[in-house]
Amino acid sequence: MRSIHVIGIGAGDPDQLTLQAVRALRDTDVFFILGKGEAKADLTDLRRDMLEAHLPEGAYRVVEARDPERDRGAGGAAYSPAVGDWRSARADIYERLIAEELGEDETGAFLVWGDPALYDSTLGILEEVLERGTVRFGYDVVPGISSVSALVARHRTGLNRVAGPVQITTGRRLAEGFPEGVDDVVVMLDAHQTFRRYADQDIDIYWGAYIGTPDEILASGPISEAAPRIEALRAEARERKGWIMDTYLLRRNPGDVRDPGRPGAENA
């Protein structure tokens, strides 16, 4: 039966692949890569660089397909259906790739940014393909160093403070309010720089973009001072590269409980 490795490849640095990931790479016959068009071609190039760094030439095949577009304008009640449609369109592509490009006795692999278990759709999509019943395969998962781990390492800080919780969320959720009972919040998938909502609070931010790549950018400090600098860095980088992937940690200092997401917070 066909076999699939889902390999977490870290935030972009080939040196951050685990030994387990390298063994999985060497066990793979065909690598499936979904490209996102010319504007994000360097994401595909980074994957190829990782393969070249760890595998001998000619020991594997690479099969590329175009990643389907997602309706990023969908909001509110339309958001979840839009994501569901996108995942199903991806499942169509995965199903075709596995059926047509992977032999019955071969092993394929999907290279996942960061860790496959953290804000990534690959595992759910593979399960959808299996549920359709048109192609059979087994798969395993190799964890990777997430952008969250890489971010705090580059800033030489921890995710949490002594005996305190940490929450990982999205920009969409952060816009609804700072999570209650948590002072350390990691934010991913934030296209709208939601941290600006908290610029009047006693919060520190640790921000990074293109973490683990040659284009890495880092900034940190009190959010009131760092926010304008991050906005400028982010705008320049996006203009230059055509895309941006960033992650940040918000650390609320003791005593500041204001939250613009809560009713009456503007009067706090």
Score class of each variant (00 low, 15 high):
Ser146Phe: 05
Arg172Trp: 13
Ile4Met: 11
Leu51Gly: 03
Leu218Ile: 05
Asp45Asn: 12
Ser220Lys: 12
Glu216Thr: 03
His155Ser: 11
Ile217Trp: 04
Glu127Val: 01
Ala268Pro: 00
Pro56Cys: 00
Gly37Glu: 05
Gly144Thr: 01
His5Ile: 02
Asp256Glu: 13
Glu95Asn: 09
Leu233Phe: 08
Lys40Thr: 05
Ser88Cys: 05
Glu216His: 02
Arg87Leu: 01
Asp204Gln: 12
Ala209Asp: 03
Gly164Leu: 14
Gly255Val: 02
Gly212Val: 01
Trp113Gly: 04
Arg23Glu: 10
Ala209Cys: 06
Ser3Gln: 15
Ala268His: 14
Glu100Cys: 05
Gly73Met: 05
Ile9Met: 08
Gly10Arg: 07
Arg196Asp: 12
Ala59Pro: 00
Thr170His: 11
Arg23Thr: 03
Phe178Val: 07
Arg48Val: 13
Ala99Gly: 09
Asp105Cys: 09
Val22Cys: 11
Glu128Ala: 15
Pro222Ala: 15
Pro254Leu: 10
Arg240Asp: 07
Gly255Cys: 07
Glu176His: 13
Ile217Asn: 06
Arg258Pro: 00
Met1Ile: 07
Leu159His: 13
Arg47Ile: 09
Glu216Arg: 04
Arg2Ser: 12
Gly144Arg: 08
Ala219Met: 11
Val187Gly: 10
Val152Lys: 06
Pro68Arg: 02
Ala232Cys: 01
Leu97Val: 02
Val112Glu: 01
Ile125Glu: 00
Arg262Asn: 10
Ile98Ala: 11
Ser146Lys: 09
Leu189Asp: 04
Ser224His: 12
Val182Phe: 11
Arg197Met: 15
Gly12Glu: 01
Glu69Pro: 00
Pro116Tyr: 04
Ala59Val: 00
Arg258Lys: 14
Glu64Cys: 06
Gly114Trp: 05
Arg136Pro: 00
Arg196Asn: 10
Val142Tyr: 05
Val129Gly: 08
Gly75Ser: 09
Arg61Phe: 06
Ala53Ser: 15
Leu43Lys: 01
Val166Trp: 08
Tyr79Ser: 04
Gly138Phe: 08
Leu17Asn: 13
Pro214Thr: 04
His192Pro: 04
Thr170Leu: 11
Gln167Asp: 03
Asp15Ile: 00
Gly158Asn: 13
Gly264Cys: 10
Arg154Asp: 09
Gly208Asn: 03
Arg136Tyr: 11
Val22Lys: 15
Gly35Gln: 07
Leu46Gln: 13
Glu128Ile: 01
Thr122Arg: 08
Val186Asn: 09
Val187Arg: 10
Ala268Asp: 14
Gly58Met: 10
His155Gln: 12
Ala226Arg: 07
Glu38Gly: 01
Arg172Ser: 14
Leu97Ile: 03
Arg154Gln: 14
Ile7Gln: 06
